[in-house]
Amino acid sequence: MPSWLLQRGRANLRRAPFASGTYGFGDNGVKHLVFAVCDHYEPLHGNVTFEQGLERVMTWRRRYPEMARRFRDANGRLPRHSYFFPGEQYDPRFVEPLAEMCAMGLGEVEVHLHHDGDTRETLRAALEKTLRDLDAHGVVPRHPKGTPAWAFIHGNWCLANARPDGRWCGVDDEMELLYELGCYADFTFPSAPDPCQPHVVNAIYYPRGDVRRRRAYEDAELAHVGMPRRDRLLMIQGPLALARRPGKRALRPLRIEGGALDAHDPPTPARLDTWVRQGVCVEGRPDWIFVKVHTHGAPEDNAEAVLGPKMAALHAALHERYNDGTRWKLHYVTAREMFNVACAAMDGKTGSPGQYIDHVIPAPPRAASATKLAHAS
C-alpha cells in the first residue's frame, strides 16, 4: 500500500503537465497506449490428459484468429498475444499451432517455467532445453550477437527464490542466470496478494545492486529517458491498483486489481480505464502508457473469457476510448515489442512507439513477415 500510494503521487505529477499541454513530444500532443496480453499458457493446467491439452491448443488456433481479425490498432496491426509456454509441458504438437499464429502476425512465443528445488546447474539445463525446443519452431529471436533472446514469466510467481517457504524455485541468483542465457526482460509481476509480490509497483525498472541475491527485484532503478541499458533484466510490470468491486458490496467495497483476465474476473471497459490510470511508463515519457495484462488462457473457462464476447468488448473499448487518433493512439504489441518500445523511450526516441517495435530485439524467424501479413485484408 505505501508503494502504491507513492506511485500514484508520481503518476499524478506526470499527468498534470501533459493535461495542460506543456509536454509537446513531437506527436501533436497525442498519448499512446502500448497494450500487451501476456499469457501463462499452460495446456496441461489442472493435470489434464494430453488429449485435453491438445484440444485446448487447437481451440485457440481456431478461435483466436477469428476474434482478432475484427480489430486493428493505429498502425493497422491485429491484436497480438504473447504465449509464455511452460518448458516442462513441451510437446511439438502444443507449440506448432502457436508458431503458426506467430507467422500470421497474431503473437509470439516466450518462456515460462515451473520448477522447484533446483540448483543453478539443473535450472540452466532446463532453460537451455526449453530454448532448444522452442527454437525448433522458429519462435526464438536472436540478440545482435546471435544468441537466443527471450522474455520470461516465472511459474508460481517465484522469481529469484522469492517465497518465504522456499518452494517453487531454489535458485537465489536466478535473475543473473536468466540474463546469462539471453533473457532480456521479466514480465512476472504483479502477483499480489501472493507473497512474491515486490514492493515496487506500476513500474518499468532495473534491479539495483547485486542481482545474485534472493528477491533481487525488490530494489528498483526506475527506467527513464536517457538511461543507458544495464547488464541485467528489465522488469516490466503490469498495472496494480485498488478498485471498486462490481455491484454493491458495502462490507468489502474495494479489491486488488492486478490485470488478470480469467473466468472469475473477465475483461471489462471499466477495468481497462483502471489499468490506464496507473500510468505505467518510462519516466520522462508519460505520453507512452504501458498496459501489460495477463491470463492463464489455456483452460476452457479462461479461454472463453479471453476468446469470447467479453474480450471482443474489451477490444471495442480500446478502440473507442484509446484509438481516436487525436487524443490517443493504440498499439498492440507482444512482450518483445513492449520491451523494444521501453528501450526506445530510454533512448530518447519520440513520436509514435509503433516505429520502435523492433528497436533492439528483432522478430523471431517465424514472424519475420508477420508485419506484412498483419496488414493483409
Rank of each mutant, 00 (worst) to 15 (best):
I236S: 06
P164Q: 05
G182D: 12
H264F: 09
A342V: 06
R167M: 10
Q197G: 00
V111Q: 02
P79S: 08
G325C: 12
W157E: 12
V200T: 14
Y322L: 06
A36G: 12
G26S: 04
T130A: 11
D210S: 12
H375R: 14
A223R: 01
I204P: 08
E88D: 11
A342R: 01
E42T: 00
F84Y: 07
Y217G: 07
F94H: 01
G297E: 08
C158T: 13
D172P: 10
P198L: 04
V276K: 01
L54E: 14
D273Y: 00
G170S: 08
F339W: 09
N340Y: 10
G259P: 08
R70T: 09
F290D: 09
L272T: 08
L181C: 05
G297D: 07
G247C: 06
L240V: 13
G279W: 05
H143Q: 08
R15V: 03
T188A: 01
R321D: 14
A260D: 14
L261I: 09
L240T: 06
R132E: 15
A125C: 06
G348A: 07
F50P: 04
L6C: 04
M104E: 15
D358R: 04
N28A: 14
H294W: 09
H294D: 02
E257A: 11
R212D: 13
F187S: 01
A99L: 06
E121I: 09
E320Q: 13
T119I: 08
R285M: 09
V341P: 11
Q278V: 08
A260Y: 11
A344S: 06
H264V: 09
I236M: 15
M101W: 03
E221N: 06
G308V: 06
Y83P: 00
G53N: 02
A270F: 01
D358Q: 13
R120G: 13
L13T: 10
R14V: 07
R167F: 02
P286V: 03
E121G: 04
V37L: 15
R244A: 10
P246S: 07
G26Q: 05
P228E: 14
G87P: 01
D165E: 15
A363L: 14
V109K: 00
G354R: 03
D273C: 00
A160R: 01
M101F: 02
C38N: 11
H154C: 08
V201L: 05
Y179L: 02
R244S: 07
H199N: 12
L177Q: 09
D165Y: 09
A192S: 13
E180P: 11
